[in-house]
């Protein structure tokens, strides 16, 4: 449900784009599956115009990654370069959000509630979120360098709408993917009338995750 809410924002953004430039908007539809052909969720699909035309960067008003029940929600958050992200703590315990990712190294030392200042992500690429208190807490923020991006749902499908027609370089990123993001890059042409459909098969690697410590109800952690 919360994902849906977030999606609504994205949808809203799309609608805004559509409303501002009703003429000549195309749609990109992508399907991502793993090496076993199973749909891959949380895959980020990014389309970068090849002509290098400047795409107006619309700053996101509000970006939030919640900490609910000692998990990052959403698990993968895509933001535009330069966006600010708030990390509200919805749990009644403290968290210590950090990132050692090259894209953005930061930490929000022990806190509860919403920290006063958001964190700005001004470098494109994935940022891995951890919690120094709860080792198993893992979240990703993908800092997109293009406004045309989408994130696959449970069915592995991504819909990127209001994409101005033209040629794009489309790539896919997933936290567990083997190989580089660039190697998934593909050229695609978006036109206003048809839906461009693309498909990726990623090789996912098993990712060791620290198992959740079941603290039990009312536990301090």
């Amino acid at each position: 449900m919360r994902n849906l809410i977030v999606d609504k924002y994205i949808l809203l953004v799309g609608l805004l784009f559509a409303w501002m430039d009703m003429s000549g908007a195309g749609e990109l539809q992508a399907f991502v599956k793993d090496q076993n052909g199973k749909p891959v969720e949380d895959a980020v699909v990014l389309a970068t115009p090849l002509d290098g035309s400047h795409v107006q960067m619309l700053k996101q008003q509000r970006n939030e990654v919640d900490q609910i029940d000692k998990e990052y929600v959403p698990h993968v958050k895509v933001v535009l370069v330069g966006s600010n992200v708030l990390f509200p703590n919805k749990d009644n315990i403290r968290h210590h959000v950090y990132s050692f990712s090259p894209g953005k190294v930061f930490e929000l030392p022990l806190y509860s509630g919403t920290p006063a200042a958001p964190v700005q992500f001004d470098k494109a690429g994935p940022v891995t979120l951890g919690c120094n208190i709860h080792d198993w807490m893992l979240g990703y923020i993908y800092v997109a360098d293009t406004p045309f991006y989408g994130k696959s749902a449970k069915d592995g499908k991504t819909h990127i709408v209001d994409v101005p027609p033209g040629d794009y370089s489309v790539r896919v990123w997933h936290p567990d993917m083997k190989g580089s993001e660039e190697s998934t890059s593909r050229k695609a042409t978006v036109d206003a009338t048809a839906v461009t459909t693309m498909e990726w098969q990623l090789t996912l690697k098993p990712v060791f995750r620290i198992p959740r410590v079941s603290g039990g109800a009312g536990s301090a952690y």
């Binding site: 050692f100 979120l129 951890g130 919690c131 080792d135 807490m137 893992l138 990712v207 060791f208």
Partner: peptide
Amino acid sequence: PVLGPLPI
């Protein structure tokens, strides 16, 4: 592993 939070 040295976790960050994935093994780094």
